[in-house]
């Protein structure tokens, strides 16, 4: 065993990359759930984003265009869910699960001609002298723009939810849609917007896997990340900064356990393999001891006639 082969700077830099898809998807889902909608289709929207982003990036040669396409693809798929649950008042749990299955199948179909294709290279942002700073440089200033975007998104979501009128409205709709409706706010319209936002975030998260993390297209390549993002939102008590903490913990321990295995540490591999899930859940459960409750209208259908 030789722990010294693990480079802590590379480890931290790697964990930020590993956490980004989860972070993006979870942030989007957080907004959806704060608006009172439970969308279990995160995995489906992510994989659709992964293939849309991949295909467009390959066709246009521009990864950034790919990310935009991924956002559009994810949002478009989420509109199916929005139609089912907000217009026809279908059950949200069933509709969300159907969305995941549909997304997995549709993405496999769309991706048939993209198996084995190499995407254009997505370069890290060149921050000049900042990247030269010892230790901090490689950790903070050596990433691609989407990673910074994900961080900015968490801050923006927190700001909007906490300090703006729009955020208050969104929360009102999530806590008590009847009251919000009685006050004259458009419950369904707000929820559809939130669902589309969630879809776009999940799409970008999926594209981050197919364009940056792996980078290639294979069927089913999101491999359950969407479900982890969903669970993370609950364990993070619907709070943006806790989602960030949870995502980084999960990404970090995933990376660390692979590093420890490579270094030959004498901890049984099974414990290492389960540690990301265990530790993330444990930390967030302890944090949620402040009795943060779920949005009161979460998962309930709304119709003006009720």
């Amino acid at each position: 065993m030789d722990i010294s082969v693990i480079n802590p700077i590379l480890l931290v830099a790697a964990l930020m990359g590993a956490a980004t898809p989860i972070l993006l998807a979870a942030t989007g889902e957080l907004v959806v759930e704060r608006a009172g909608v439970l969308n279990l289709g995160v995995e489906g929207m992510m994989i659709i984003g992964a293939i849309c982003g991949f295909a467009v990036a390959v066709e246009t040669g521009s990864p950034l265009t790919g990310f935009v396409a991924a956002a559009i693809g994810g949002a478009a798929l989420s509109l199916v869910f929005a139609f089912l649950t907000q217009v026809t008042l279908a059950n949200q749990v069933a509709s969300g699960l159907a969305l995941t299955l549909f997304g997995l199948g549709l993405s496999a179909l769309l991706g048939q001609s993209y198996v084995g294709v190499k995407p254009p290279k997505f370069d890290d942002l060149d921050l000049g002298a900042l990247g030269e700073i010892p230790v901090l440089g490689p950790i903070l200033f050596s990433h691609d723009i989407v990673l910074y975007f994900a961080l900015a998104l968490v801050a923006a979501v927190w700001l909007v939810l906490r300090f703006t009128r729009f955020g208050l409205l969104l929360r009102a709709v999530g806590e008590n849609h009847d009251a919000a409706h009685a006050l004259g706010y458009k419950v369904v319209r707000l929820r559809v917007l939130a669902i589309m936002f969630g879809g776009a975030c999940a799409g970008v998260g999926g594209a981050y896997i197919s364009l940056v993390r792996v980078p290639q297209w294979t069927e089913g390549m999101t491999a359950g990340v969407g479900w982890i993002a969903l669970a993370l939102v609950v364990f993070a008590s619907w709070k943006p900064w806790r989602v960030l903490l949870g995502a980084y913990l999960f990404g970090g321990i995933t990376q660390l356990q692979l590093n420890l295995q490579g270094a030959g540490v004498a901890i049984p591999v099974e414990y290492l393999a389960m540690s990301p899930y265990l530790i993330t859940i444990l930390v967030l459960v302890i944090l949620s001891a402040d009795k943060s409750a779920a949005p009161a209208s979460l998962g309930r259908s709304f119709h003006a006639s009720n």
Partner: peptide, 26 residues
Amino acid sequence: FKIVWAYTWFDPAKEADAAKVLIEQG
């Protein structure tokens, strides 16, 4: 030999991570 167990047959992101870690470790 440095051996990393992925505990999966198919998970592209995890397989890519494992490869990156091995490469980072030389």
